[in-house]
Amino acid sequence: MSTQSNATESRSKMIQLKNVNKWYGTFHVLKDINLDVYKGERIVVCGPSGSGKSTMIRCINRLEEHQAGDIIVKDIPLTNDLKNIDSVRREVGMVFQHFNLFPHLTVLQNCTLAPIWVRKMPQKQAEEVAMSFLERVKIPHQAHKYPGQLSGGQQQRVAIARSLCMNPEVMLFDEPTSALDPEMIKEVLDTMVQLAESGMTMICVTHEMGFAKTVADRVIFMDAGQIVEENEPEEFFHNPQNERTQLFLSQILQH
């Protein structure tokens, strides 16, 4: 394992993964994952496809079930207890590779649905909150359109706003720019940088190394279901310790 992050123990732990293991049938996807994420920390997870990075963050809000080990989010242990799962999901927002906006609802309805039905917020208040977040991601004028009428970049920004409307403490990003046209990646990354600057705890699975360098507190490299190396971005990119990391970096930074 690599060097411990410089995060001080005095900061509160937001997410703890202890010896997390997961199998798909007989295939061992996650092997003894140990990870502590502190409040306000920004973590970038990278690695080759099939390395388990998406599975790992999907375990954090129970979209995937882990079979051994402990996951604790804000002192709530993730077990089969539906109450715990619900409370964890309320604290954890997620942005998907393919946006997964609800196509039968307008942009505004996409953003107000969960606050109204899960947080029991009055509709008027939910709409005000939604509009404030849509302004933050710079698309308030599209509020009454349907997702199908927006570009990919706009849809992903709506998806970010939709998650933020639930006022989460942690945001998970699962390859948020991988399905976008090159011209639209920047607008989504700008939104994410802005979010990072506001102090949000973030875990991003991404291959945008520029984003990792500017924003991340820690970069984690995964392969074959294990955390191979974790370090500050400066050290990670310029002085990788593990052979596998060096190979990966040489492949993606070649061009």
Partner: peptide, 30 residues
């Protein structure tokens, strides 16, 4: 209906029945 719709609804904290009646069935019935 793509699986992502259910996942997005679950990630927002919607329960099974709310996911079905607010997200999945309106799209599927159409």
């Amino acid at each position: 209906i793509p699986k992502g719709q259910t996942e997005a609804a679950q990630a927002l904290g919607l329960s099974y029945w709310k996911t079905m009646f607010l997200i999945i069935l309106p799209q599927a019935l159409k």
